[in-house]
Design a protein around this nucleic acid. Sequence first.
DNA 1: GTCCGCATGTCAGAGCCCTGATGTCCCGGG
DNA 2: CCCGGGACATCAGGGCTCTGACATGCGGAC
Lengths: 153, 153
Amino acid sequence: MGSEEARIAEAVAWRPGNAIKRAEQALIAEKSRVLRPFGLTVPQYAAMYALSLAPGVSGAKLARFCSVTPQSMTTVLKTLESRGLVERRPSSDHAQVLVTRLTRAGQALLRKADAAAVAVERKLVEAFTPDEADRLRDLLERAVVVLETPAGE
Amino acid sequence: MGSEEARIAEAVAWRPGNAIKRAEQALIAEKSRVLRPFGLTVPQYAAMYALSLAPGVSGAKLARFCSVTPQSMTTVLKTLESRGLVERRPSSDHAQVLVTRLTRAGQALLRKADAAAVAVERKLVEAFTPDEADRLRDLLERAVVVLETPAGE
DNA sequence: GTCCGCATGTCAGAGCCCTGATGTCCCGGG
DNA sequence: CCCGGGACATCAGGGCTCTGACATGCGGAC
């Protein structure tokens, strides 16, 4: 049955979208692994990283930076807030907007977690020549454009 | 503040893993869109497709084909079963194993949904020359290998 | 000055995905 | 013959993500 399984697996893997999916999964898995000691999930780390670049931004903008919906970002921020890693308070000008910032504890944790996360990215980069890395980025970017183009090409 | 946002967005997108993430997201989004009329999610479609290649397989093997955990596959199969698209029954030799098959309704729905899903894959393939598609697959495959290699390179 | 558009935040619901822990069953080595 | 490894399924719990629907507030158009 081993060859049978191999045949099926190959048939499933044949589709080009699958290569992208597997790469993403491997990336998520590895990042999760290195972030686990810090008690952070990948989305939590991503939110904190974006927050370190743009302190005091609204949740909606943060969601856009991280390519998720505002609702998803809200759930992430709520768990981070419950752990005292971020704090949210109404903006002074826009009563509707919730200004979000890293707490001191959040900054300290991010510094350590970031080193681990960057190491994963670096491991990935170092597997390619600069030329190959550019090529990969370019091909993926073109894939995004094609997939997001509605119907009429 | 527009340029500020652009600067942040660029800083976030800079990381190589992000290109993979965005491509995967675009792929999922587009597949979800074309599968919605059939009432199927991407994981549900993936499970049914794998099931059409390997009828009567165990849930655990199906999970491996789809690159998810057995638990995830169980939840997907449960919703498919509740809709009468698949059926599961204990194997005659292995009392422990649940043999899973598409029902007639499942096969009929898959035929229609598959056409839509394949169209997305084809749109993706046609955006590249055969050479580029191979190159992309190769680069992604190398990324997977690197990411899954433990520590000692 | 009033009103509509757009952004923001929130609740509700459904689904997927993972880790961890259990219990069951088959099969082959001792 | 017995027993442990391996494979399968399941429960429990924590998180993420989306769609849909709704309420509020700022600001420009009229």
